[in-house]
Design a protein around this nucleic acid. Structure first.
Lengths: 209, 209
DNA sequence: ACAAGTTATGAATATTAGTTCATAATATGA
DNA sequence: TCATATTATGAACTAATATTCATAACTTGT
């Protein structure tokens, strides 16, 4: 057996694994964990149930794998931005606009990340998916500390940094989600710019404030 | 059989129904629909499973009943405010602060309303709970039209009214939820005032804007 | 106290869906 | 072509749980 042969088999195995994950992602994100059967996933992936169990120990572990890879991909986009060496206002602005990339690349991943017994910002049961929750926490903390130093420097108003992070994230998440549901509704850039304007300067006309 | 007797029985029946609903609310809001068995609900309510089925045709219809009554109670608080005869800014301000009442009175109802395979603002599957979704829609539409007329009158900036409603609701919902999760974190009034300030005037200091 | 009607009970049933495993198919290298 | 190893298959097994229903307990008016 030549080395090339072995590698092909490995590639194929990985490929099959991916196909199963993709199928599961499609179904979970559409119908939710409890409303998708292993049978269904097998059919969607064009394998038998037995084969799924060659790759994953259980339905739960399949789901866990999906969740953690999605959370990882999203954090790879957002975290570097928050760690850049720019000023606070710039970081927040970049953070806001980075969501364009997220909407464009990861629609179904996000569906998974937000859909669920577990619920977005709102995380009813933080115990269910530790990795996804950790990513959310990381981002919240980074945002908070940016707001904190921004307040100290007098860029931002006096305000609770955590409440501000939460508000911003909530605005962004709900926008992301609405774009995934109805992509035609408005241009991504326009929506994100509105959020930026709203978040930085508020809804009132200057003459009214 | 005197009339009084009949009425007592009716009262008791309603009472029993309420007790079942309460037990179900406690369990569903804590663990989610799929993770609560009918047995459990029966035990929590101190009835037998059979009795539950005398009141509700199925587990799903029990849940549906809960959802619609929660949605109804919440809309009874929020909708009148949006229908009042005050100016746009006042309505939005009242709307924001009405969430105090919601947090205080309806913690577990909201847990139910937000928890779920169905997911808050983000409603993965609008088909699952039509009534709750209808309430959300109503509120979004009322908010939108307030923003629309506010923009026309020059109170608010030029902006997409729907995006603005969505942003505001997202901020409020995530705040409500965080208060339900960690009631100690901050005072309700302070949080809501911050959201008001943020939403109306933004996060930047005036000198920076 | 009894008959008639109402409500409660929970063991039994039916169904659904996650998991296993003996078997079949396929690929590999000699 | 054959022996070996790897991977795929899906019917059968199992566990969990939603639902039913024959029976029991209780209420009420006479």
């Amino acid at each position: 057996m030549g080395k090339a042969g072995l590698r092909r088999k490995e590639r194929e195995k990985l490929q099959h694994r991916e196909e199963i994950l993709d199928a599961a992602l499609r179904l979970f994100s559409e119908k939710g964990f409890h409303n998708v059967s292993v049978q269904e996933i097998a059919e969607e992936a064009e394998f038998s149930v037995g084969t799924l169990y060659n790759f994953f120990a259980s339905k739960e572990s399949l789901f866990a794998g999906l969740m953690s890879s999605c959370a990882k991909r999203i954090s790879e986009i957002l975290v570097p931005i928050l760690d850049e060496k720019t000023d606070e206002r710039g970081k927040i602005s970049n953070f806001i606009h980075a969501h364009k990339q997220i909407i464009e690349s990861y629609a179904s991943s996000i569906r998974l990340y937000l859909s669920q017994d577990v619920c977005s910002v709102l995380t009813v049961r933080p115990d269910v998916e530790p990795e996804a929750d950790a990513v959310r926490d990381t981002i919240q903390q980074k945002l908070s500390s940016i707001f904190k130093s921004g307040v100290r420097k007098g860029v931002f108003k006096e305000m609770d940094p955590r409440a501000a992070s939460l508000s911003l994230s909530a605005m962004l998440e709900s926008f992301v989600f609405s774009m995934i549901k109805e992509p035609e509704r408005m241009q991504i850039e326009l929506g994100l710019s509105l959020i930026e304007e709203l978040f930085f300067k508020g809804a009132l006309k200057d003459t009214e404030a």
